[in-house]
Write a protein that binds this DNA or RNA. Structure first.
Lengths: 227, 227
DNA sequence: CGGACTGTTGACGTCATTCAAGATAAGTGG
DNA sequence: CCACTTATCTTGAATGACGTCAACAGTCCG
């Protein structure tokens, strides 16, 4: 059960970034490490949620399965936690977690986490903070998917990746396009077409490199206009 | 600033259901009451979020505005809180809150809430619990809207309203249909048609009364089938 | 050089929105 | 209480956006 992780590595997670040495020791003593390969499943919807995960390296996607589609709730990167709400609430996973490329995660059993929250107010406050952030993020995600159409969704996503200064800039897509497409609630084909629609607005895309000629040109799509 | 509310009334909210008398007094002393009429706006997206709301009577819808549509994030009923994540996180509302019919709400200023969370671990844990619930709810809502098509969405929603035993039952829609439609991410026209599509599956609707002949008949729509 | 994978493009179908009109219900004033 | 007005809901037909299917072009690796 002892995880071969150092204090510094756990400190790199949001939740434990300011934890005391005692807390870190407690986490390390009670947890285990997991390594997963690309497309490997960490858990499936409906299974009992008996531990919380912290991504140390790589990325994990959380998605819901429908009849034949699936909806990506979030793509979790290094430092972030997941499955926390399921552990604290229902005890059952509502989504499925799948590795996006090889990854390393810290797995903290439910009793350890609930103990920490209960005994350390600082941790409890961190959890609150973290949940508040996730609620905001879900809300944003929801807005994008329900209120925008495909081209606009992509533009919004790309603008989120790009630095906030005006003028030309280059962005590297963090995942393969088909994952981005699903994350944005569309088919890969639609992403492709959306990319094409943005070309007249000063966007070029070669492989995973995307070049934005001018932020404002893209942002102008949102004012009242159509793509 | 003193709210004309009794202890018992505040105890009816999720967050303060088990609060000590001291906490209740602190809340009452620091808060104010708000009464709003139908369609009245409590706050708009982008405004500073300087207080948390607790619905005592009536309902409030939280929605996001898009170019010309709007997406309902949730409909908050008596006992529930809203704007909490915005207060704790960004300090700005990301959604708009609008009364659905006349309602009474308790308005607790940000410093009061943050103070309570900071000084009372029991409150902090309640907040965590509440956020975990909301995350689950958002996830469900998301699933419905992204993964189901209109007829199925309505069926799912109605099944959620109906009691869990098999056989015939009658349900009264909690809101007007056009609000339910928006909540389910569709136009009122689509809701109407979806209702029609469910008729062959043993569903009748007169005004706001809905009669489900057999739960199983509706649930069978989800297995692999089509409406 | 082949084979598998990822991304692109076109033609077509489906589902939901949109627009317009009508029907039912609810609220208002005489 | 009834005529009248105003919401709310339903229905139909047309448009449009996205998904689906199928074929093809790059790209990555052995």
């Amino acid at each position: 059960m002892v995880a071969p992780v150092g204090h510094e590595e756990i400190r790199r997670t949001e939740l434990f970034s300011e934890a005391t040495v005692e807390i870190l020791d407690e986490v390390i003593a009670g947890s285990s490490m997991g390594t997963y390969g690309n497309r490997q499943c960490l858990y499936r919807a409906g299974q009992p949620a008996d531990r919380v995960f912290f991504v140390l390296e790589g990325e994990v996607q959380i998605y819901l399965r429908g009849n034949r589609k699936h909806a990506v709730l979030s793509i979790v990167g290094a430092g972030e936690a997941f499955a926390l709400s399921a552990v604290l609430e229902t005890g059952r996973h509502m989504g499925t977690a799948e590795a996006v490329g090889p990854c390393r995660v810290l797995e903290v059993p439910a009793p350890v986490i609930t103990g920490l929250i209960h005994r350390h107010p600082a941790i409890a406050e961190k959890v609150i903070h973290l949940f508040a952030l996730r609620l905001q993020a879900m809300s944003d995600h929801f807005e994008r998917i329900q209120l925008m159409q495909t081209t606009q969704r992509l533009a919004d996503y790309l603008l989120g990746l790009a630095p906030d200064r005006p003028g030309k800039c280059e962005v590297v897509l963090p995942f393969e396009k088909s994952l981005i497409a699903t994350y944005l609630g569309m088919e890969p084909e639609s992403l492709s077409r959306a990319m094409k629609n943005l070309r007249p607005h000063g966007l070029t895309c070669v492989g995973r490199k995307v070049c934005i000629e001018d932020r404002n040109a893209l942002e102008s799509l949102f004012a009242e206009g159509r793509a």
